[in-house]
Design a protein around this nucleic acid. Structure first.
Length: 310
DNA sequence: TTGCTGACCTGCACGC
DNA sequence: TGCGTGCAGGTCAGCA
């Protein structure tokens, strides 16, 4: 399922294939995929048609493509659990869960019959579970950097660990001020963004921390170790093209990533812990139910804290 | 203000 | 074979 590294892979693909192209047509095949757009699918289609896409940007798992002036608007995408943004030929048969198609013309706008014209492309939003969607949103200044614009609906999202302006000390202070468990805090996109269930489990395993560790007991070194583990997991995933778990994630060209082969705890319940099973053969990864989802950890190298916040 | 829970949503695996 | 149930989980509204 798409998390930050997967969204970044998609952003790079859009920068390569979609930036600079004008939108000549939009078709919303499932209104639920534009439910976050004011005015519904018809307004989405009419307001996007005729606009030109510029360089895509990302914060956490939100991706947006600012539209060329006028208007200060952006096409915002969230992939939810199963969303895909694909670039394909308009003639390619529709995918099973195709929800929105956006026709992109030649970037120079010289018409399809010009000898050096690039062929038209289609940006397709495919989403099995319809947790994601596309919408248009006005751009507003970022709360901490007025020269940086982002969609209004993304303004409450914190910077992610791959952001050059990510402030680990500030996150440590805010973590200490919370009264909750560490995994619950990691999944709060208002505290630190881009972390989903898979990478939360993987980062906690790398940092040797149990998911129910109270945030107010973390010292500065432990916070730093955890945030470094988050960044390492994301960078590893990014270098391998993302996590292609259950085939619900592909890049804009429809190719899967390979990070799933590197997962140490997520989806590994019942298997030996890759770190400590060499010395203790009876150590296997455990899966708990947590926050209406699963949480995997090694009971030996991530022991349950004395004072846990479940 | 902060923390927590349930709803949204579909496809697959599994048991009967 | 067909049906029902549980599970997967990111985000947000609503409640305590």
């Amino acid at each position: 399922m798409p998390e930050l590294p997967e969204v970044e892979v998609v952003r790079r693909g859009l920068a390569r294939w979609a930036a600079g192209r004008p939108v000549s047509g939009v078709e919303v095949l499932d209104a639920r995929s534009t439910r976050r757009h004011d005015g519904g699918p018809a307004a989405f289609e009419s307001q996007l048609t005729g606009r030109r896409l510029t360089a895509p940007e990302r914060r956490g798992k939100y991706l947006w493509v600012p539209l060329a002036a006028p208007g200060g608007m952006a096409l915002v995408a969230h992939l939810g659990m199963s969303g895909q943004l694909l670039i394909s030929s308009p003639e390619t048969p529709a995918q099973r869960h195709l929800r929105i198609r956006v026709l992109l013309e030649d970037p120079v706008g010289q018409g399809p019959d010009a000898p050096d014209a690039e062929p038209a492309l289609e940006l397709r939003f495919v989403d099995q579970r319809i947790f994601g969607g596309l919408f248009l949103d006005p751009l507003v200044p970022s709360a901490d950097r007025a020269d940086q614009l982002l969609p209004a609906s993304v303004a409450h999202i914190a910077r992610d660990p791959l952001d050059p302006y990510f402030d680990a000390d500030s996150v440590h202070v805010r973590l200490r001020a919370r009264k909750t468990g560490i995994k619950r805090a990691l999944l709060d996109q208002g505290l630190v963004s881009g972390i989903g269930n898979i990478y939360a489990d993987e980062a906690l395993w790398r940092a040797r921390l149990h998911y129910a560790r109270p945030t107010e007991t973390l010292n500065r070194g432990e916070s730093a170790r955890l945030l470094a583990a988050v960044r390492d997991v994301m960078e590893d995933a990014l270098s391998q093209g993302g996590t292609s778990f259950d085939s619900l994630y592909v890049n804009v060209n429809g190719e899967s990533g390979y990070f799933e082969r590197s997962l140490n705890v997520y989806g590994q319940a019942g298997r030996p812990c890759p770190r400590c099973a060499a010395e203790h053969r009876d150590t296997v990864i455990v899966k708990d139910r947590f926050m209406n989802r699963s949480s995997a950890y090694c009971p030996r190298c991530q022991p349950v804290p004395r004072r846990a916040r479940w």
